[in-house]
Design a protein around this nucleic acid. Sequence first.
DNA 1: TTGACACACTTAGTTAGGCTAACTAACTTA
DNA 2: TAAGTTAGTTAGCCTAACTAAGTGTGTCAA
Lengths: 131, 131
Amino acid sequence: MPLLHLLRSLRRTDEATGLSPARLSALSVIVFGAPLSLADLAAAEQVRPPTMSKIVAALEAEGLVKRSPNPNDGRAIRLSATAKGVRVLERGRRMRVESLAARLQELDSEEITALSNAAGTIERLAREKDF
Amino acid sequence: MPLLHLLRSLRRTDEATGLSPARLSALSVIVFGAPLSLADLAAAEQVRPPTMSKIVAALEAEGLVKRSPNPNDGRAIRLSATAKGVRVLERGRRMRVESLAARLQELDSEEITALSNAAGTIERLAREKDF
DNA sequence: TTGACACACTTAGTTAGGCTAACTAACTTA
DNA sequence: TAAGTTAGTTAGCCTAACTAAGTGTGTCAA
């Protein structure tokens, strides 16, 4: 299956959270990296600030994220997740882990070994090449 | 790196062809599967007919694809690639193969073996699960 | 044979998520 | 303090997904 088709299936709203991939990913970075500025978040997500500005606005409107002023810099904001944001993310993560585990149970042990070895290489590439 | 970020890099126009991924992928299906109807193409690409209708219109406007009437069904169209469409696709494919080959040369033989084994499993999954 | 339904495609309108350009406000520095 | 930089937002554009509705063609049964 072409990677594009995988992309298209990813594009849909995550059943477990009701969030689109871009929002879910941004929320995840906020939950684990808070507090952080919009520029930092945009950089982490590899999009431009205006794009992230919209995504954050949507997350804020859903009550998943909140902005606070940065006391050291009146231009900047500090993003953090609300309790609801954390809850939504964790529920989604749990459900995705379960679904992946179910798929992996269909493989035999040789296949799992092959995937695991490849995962190591892919991770190394990811670190070194930012691929 | 999250899959989402990989996909975002895919989203950009392919340097070698000047086509967006959705258009390039559709063109490829047309080149190798012509003649085919819009509905067939939409199904192959896993999108709805209106979406494909627009993509085909764009490809046609660029002179990469042409529509002919289906003599057996006045409702349907038959899509095929123009010579230019074939040329554009082949040039892009050649350049992508070269770029991938260059990346693979940075791996050692153990890593290549691991990737190759995993590819077999992934392909099998793809066939069986339409993943 | 014709009326009803089914099908192929298009059109219209919405939404998400990218982008650049241009703006405001706040900080820094010469 | 004036000039320049930085953080974030707003406006406007694009692609590409969707649904709903329209047009025209095909099919089939009464």
